[in-house]
Structures are given as structure tokens and as C-alpha cells.
């Protein structure tokens, strides 16, 4: 199913028709923000568009169409394929992933049980983050990830929405299929938020290469442990490190001979080293390559690549 249809399917019937017939460039679409009684915002790499009352797209905020709580409730039915109960765990974490790997963040009134979030009611805000697979976007990083022909444990670092996951996805594909530097490797992917592989009914929607095994919807420590035991991966790839238990899991994976390929949220080296978990990883020389993406300009742009000590690497 093409990107346009994947996105259209989550909207109420009348909006679907507008989106299908409008001239919106879905390839440039990065996010859609829906808030109850507020205009729906379509973000296209710096530009904002709205649905007008005349059932077309507009750049004018005055004519922008607002969604009601009922519209959002209806959207949730479509997002969950009429199966909200099957997304309870994801909803507890505040997001759902739909076909195509697009992540939908949700916000509303949380239900607490002894301080623990057990669900969300009165969902009034949705954030659709549109996933794009850009084949070859990791080409620029790949040569820097090797030292004396050996793949290094690598972290891709950037702020939010700068293309970390897209680059990670492409690097997984290239390592799995084989590169000019190395034959194909067995890659184990722990896809906690179903964003990397975009698995739909257990099958990866994104091209992650021919030697990739995906553990979908599993926490990173548990998934890494299971993959190492069962699939014997050469490389373990995970998205957004930083949770509790991740440090031990990474240590354990590296100690058992796996290479690490992961992303983490930080804007520069200074900010990165302020994260205690990363400080330990770097201090123990477990991570030896850091790929920083630019915080401005086109997403996926590499700012610089350095080693674990922060020294910039030149080829």
C-alpha cells in the first residue's frame, strides 16, 4: 500500500476524500498534528498546511478545519484496526504504530493505578510521525564505522525528528545485505516501538536486508537477551537507547561478541556525555563511533563523526 493511502486510512471518511484528491506532497510530509478543537497541522519540512473548510488544503490558518473529540475517537478506531484492546500496551506507552511504520503519539487524560499509568482516556491529541525509508541514506556513515576492517560499536546521535531511525534502518539493511567493506552479517533488531521494521502482523514492512531478524514490540533488554540466545546475531540494532536496564543489556551483548548499532537522543557531544548511561558506555570504551546528525537543514544530514573520546574522524 502506498504512503498516501496508509495515511488517508486513519482519517474520518470525509477527510479521506479531501486528502486523496488534494495536491499534498506526501513524500515531504513529516508529521500531522491533530488536537481537539484546534486546526489539524500538516508539517512538510518546515512548511505548514491545513485542511480548509472547502475540503482542500490551504496555507491559510483562518479557513483551517478543526477536529472534534468525536473525530479523534473515530480516528482511534481506524488507527487500531477496530481493535483498541490489542494496543493497550502501546497506548500505555503513549503511541501506536500503524502499517508503514508511522508512529502515532497520543495524549490525553491518564489513568493511574498506584502511580503507574494503566491507560489513557479522553484522548485529545494525536501526533502522526510519517516514516520514510530512504535507501542509501547511510552511505555517508558506513566507511567511518570500520577501523582496520572491523565494524565498530556505533551510536547515531541527534535531536528529535532529524532522521536517526531512517539512517539506522538503512545501515541495518546495508550491513545485513553486505557492503564493500564486509560480507553480509546477521543483524538482530529489537524494535520496541515497531518503528524500525514497521512490522505489520509480524512481517517487516521496511527493507532491513536479507539477514535481519526482528524482535518486535519487545523491551530492549529482554529483546536483546532473547535474540542473542536464539538467533546468534553478529550485530544488535536498537532504537533510542536510554531506558532502565539498557546499559546492562548493551554490556552483556558486547561481551558476548555482538556489535552494537543504536540511536540516542542528544544534540551534541557535550549533551551526550551528560547522560550518565552514555558516560559509562564511553568510559568503558564500549562505544567507539558516534555519528552526529545536523540539527538544522535536511533531516539525515551528517554533522560530524567522532570516536568515543570525541575526536573527529577523517577518512
Amino acid at each position: 500500500m502506498e504512503l498516501k493511502e496508509q495515511i488517508c486510512r486513519i482519517f474520518p471518511r470525509n477527510i479521506r476524500d479531501t486528502l486523496r484528491s488534494c495536491d499534498l506532497d506526501f513524500e515531504r510530509l513529516s508529521a500531522i498534528r491533530i488536537r481537539a478543537n484546534k486546526p489539524v497541522i500538516f508539517s512538510l519540512q518546515g512548511e505548514e498546511r491545513y485542511i480548509s473548510g472547502q475540503k482542500s488544503m490551504t496555507g491559510n490558518l483562518k479557513n483551517a478545519l478543526c477536529f472534534s473529540m468525536d473525530d479523534i475517537r473515530e480516528m482511534l478506531e481506524f488507527i487500531s484496526n477496530y481493535s483498541l484492546y490489542a494496543f493497550e500496551e502501546e497506548m500505555r506507552q503513549g503511541f501506536m504504530t500503524i502499517q508503514g511504520g508511522h508512529r502515532i503519539g497520543i495524549a490525553g487524560n491518564t489513568i493511574l493505578d498506584r502511580g503507574r499509568v494503566t491507560g489513557i482516556r479522553y484522548i485529545s491529541c494525536l501526533n502522526v510521525r510519517v516514516a520514510h525509508q530512504v535507501l542509501g541514506c547511510g552511505d555517508g556513515c558506513l566507511p567511518y564505522m570500520y577501523e582496520h576492517g572491523i565494524l565498530q560499536n556505533t551510536l547515531i546521535v541527534s535531536g528529535c525528528g532529524r532522521g536517526k531511525t531512517t539512517i539506522l534502518r538503512d545501515l541495518i539493511r546495508q550491513l545485513s545485505n553486505g557492503t564493500s567493506f564486509q560480507r553480509g552479517l546477521n543483524v538482530g533488531v529489537v524494535d520496541e516501538r515497531s518503528e524500525i521494521a514497521a512490522s505489520c502482523r509480524g512481517v517487516a514492512q521496511m527493507n532491513l536486508g536479507m539477514r535481519t531478524d526482528v524482535m518486535d514490540g519487545c523491551t530492549k533488554p529482554a529483546g536483546m537477551e532473547m535474540l542473542i540466545r536464539s538467533m546468534a546475531p553478529d550485530v544488535i540494532a536498537v532504537d533510542e537507547l536510554g531506558g532502565s536496564g539498557d546499559l546492562e543489556a548493551v554490556r552483556s551483548a558486547i561481551a558476548r561478541g555482538c556489535k552494537l548499532l543504536a540511536t540516542i537522543h542528544a544534540s551534541d557531544y557535550k549533551e551526550l556525555t551528560c547522560i550518565p548511561f552514555i558516560k559509562k558506555l564511553l568510559g568503558e570504551h564500549l562505544v567507539t563511533r558516534l555519528i552526529f546528525l545536523a540539527n538544522e537543514g535536511k533531516p539525515g544530514l551528517i554533522q560530524y563523526i567522532c570516536n568515543g573520546e570525541g575526536g573527529e574522524i577523517q577518512l
Binding site: E77, S80, Y82, S83, L84, Y85, E88, G119
Partner: peptide, 10 residues
């Protein structure tokens, strides 16, 4: 109620 409730409620 099918598909629009939480598991226990359903």
C-alpha cells in the same frame, strides 16, 4: 463495544 474498549472491559 467490540474493538473500542479496553481488554478487561470488553
Amino acid at each position: 463495544f467490540l474493538g473500542s474498549c479496553r481488554m478487561e472491559q470488553q
